[in-house]
Design a protein around this nucleic acid. Structure first.
Lengths: 108, 108
DNA sequence: CCTATTAGTAAGCCATGACTTACGATGTAA
DNA sequence: TTACATCGTAAGTCATGGCTTACTAATAGG
């Protein structure tokens, strides 16, 4: 697992739309494409990226492929976020006593 | 606030490096640039994006500009993540009884 | 079988954005 | 004031990646 793969995956708005469409129930590629502004192959390519980032899983059902959210990827994101928080809170605490700011700059 | 701005901001690996460098203590642009593989103007441009996403804050100190993490952006990310979880957990539960998968495809 | 449905891949186009160098603006200190 | 340090922005280059239109593969059903 690399954060690069995960964050570049959710960095794309179309892919986030896919994830949000899968929040309530699994869907096939065709169903997803039908409610999105891009073509089915485009959705297919996005799903490949999401699969690689372990953000979705696939289950073949006949000729259809059913995609669903994958907890793994979401947990990875949470892990990164928690790591940021822990250290950040420390940093915030040790900077409650702010040093004085310099005088404001003249506007151009 | 838009998730587009936030997620496209953290989608870039260099910008995530910046955030991680700021986890422990605030830093100036020069300090950040010194420990990164890109030029100072590049860092400056990234900081502009991070500022716009409310992921960092600036404090002028003389001619130097000190950047620090901004809780706001991190909280926004957590918000998105929590939203995904709530609905996703429901979906997971209602699919514990899996329908049978079709027979596997022949390999090409 | 033969056809229809569903989906992944290949190839190519094109916009977005990440980077560099050059420059201008601001604040500090002698 | 002059020189220096620090920074943001402008302009231009170039690679990345998201999209479309073919095309191919695989399964279900008559």
């Amino acid at each position: 697992m690399t954060y690069d793969v995960i964050f570049s995956a959710i960095g794309d708005p179309t892919r986030r739309s896919v994830l949000e469409a899968l929040r309530h129930q699994p869907m096939t590629v065709g169903m997803l494409a039908k409610q999105m502004p891009v073509s089915r192959p485009a959705v297919s390519q996005h799903l490949k990226v999401l699969r690689n980032a372990e953000l979705v899983t696939v289950t073949p059902r006949g000729t259809a492929n059913e995609y669903a959210l994958n907890k793994k990827g979401l947990e990875d994101i949470r892990g990164w976020l928690d790591g940021m928080w822990d250290d950040a809170l420390e940093a915030f605490k040790s900077h409650v006593e702010q040093k004085p700011k310099s005088k404001p700059r003249r506007k151009k």
